[in-house]
Design a protein around this nucleic acid. Structure first.
Lengths: 183, 183
DNA sequence: CCTCGATGAGACATTGGCGTCTCATTCGGT
DNA sequence: ACCGAATGAGACGCCAATGTCTCATCGAGG
């Protein structure tokens, strides 16, 4: 009965996002396995965290690929990305809040690659005139992460319905909260 | 030579926001005091965290008071709040990311009060027709926290200039990132 | 100059979690 | 029904951090 590695990591992310000091024992029990088995699959806490980083980066990379960031208007691409990212929001939320992680070089590199792609999308949107230029692309990148994390947390806490997650993030990002005049 | 309690807490927040497992020793050294003195002022790690929560709640409460959330159009009030909150962004960022904290009843109550005030502001804005109603006030509240946290982090990492912090948060929140047609 | 309160430096025992191990049990495939 | 791999339960030593203590030093105010 092979343990579902991804399932364990997803559980771990949920717990660690909420309390970063969650013990291995708690993680194991939440994943429905024993601490011994957890150790059999992940050499130690560090290895578990590394695996989580890796999973997050892989999943987010896939989301970016699926969203075809380079196709069409940047706002549309951004909507597609948010739709794709929704499914990995939990793991992403963990990665955003655990800033301590990015000290190892290789992880940093993987993350920087994602960062660059999102940054490039915003930059393209600005150059094509679709996005405002008084907000730096760097800030838009960070803000997007922040909103995805906030949304994942809000859903987790039951403050926002899961079905509204997409709309909430995309509309807030693209349109802002002010009531538009056209309506 | 009385230790500047607030200074110590601010330092601690900066470290803990970056790595929540930072040891008491590291916190003490960062604050320029010895571990013994740190323990003399805060009974233990828990007490330090509690004090941080308290400080964050107090400072954010003051920011809300100073912003006069009930006066004038909601968007203007929100701008004022962001301006006031900028100075306490560091401590706030820590509070947002450390979700584990809100398990004690009394802390929860203090935080819930702040939550309610911000929530009420958004609700008022929606009722007065200034804010769009297809995004729930609860989500706007969470999103605001997320953006403040993201901004504080971005500034800390040097990706956003401190002077742009206000503008970045307020404009993104109110207007979104899309280039408006009127321009 | 003296005194007292606060601080720094360090020793010490305690604790909670980690990592490793063993052994019994269970599950899946044959 | 059988066998082997995987798992669960628990014991064990280890270690880093914690919390408490003592003692020397510093510094401000009388």
């Amino acid at each position: 009965m092979a343990v579902d590695r991804e399932q364990v990591l997803t559980q771990a992310a949920a717990l660690l996002a909420r309390r970063s000091t969650t013990s291995m024992d708690e993680i194991a029990r939440a994943a429905g396995i024993s601490r011994a088995t957890l150790h059999r699959h992940f050499a130690g806490r560090d290895a578990l965290i590394r695996a989580l980083e890796q999973l997050g980066i892989e999943q987010f990379t896939q989301a970016m690929d699926a969203a075809r960031l380079d196709d069409g208007p940047a706002p549309d691409a951004l909507r597609r990305l948010i739709t794709e990212a929704e499914q990995v929001a939990g793991v992403l939320a963990f990665l955003f809040t655990e800033n301590q992680l990015f000290e190892g070089a290789e992880v940093n590199a993987g993350w920087a690659r994602l960062d660059a792609r999102l940054h490039a999308l915003f930059r393209r949107g600005q150059e094509e005139g679709d996005l405002r230029i008084d907000l730096s692309a760097a800030w838009l990148t960070e803000a997007t992460y922040g909103l995805i994390g906030a949304a994942a947390w809000a859903v987790h806490e039951g403050r926002v319905a899961r079905g509204e997650l997409n709309h909430s993030i995309a509309e807030l990002l693209l349109g802002g909260i002010r009531r538009s005049m056209e309506k």
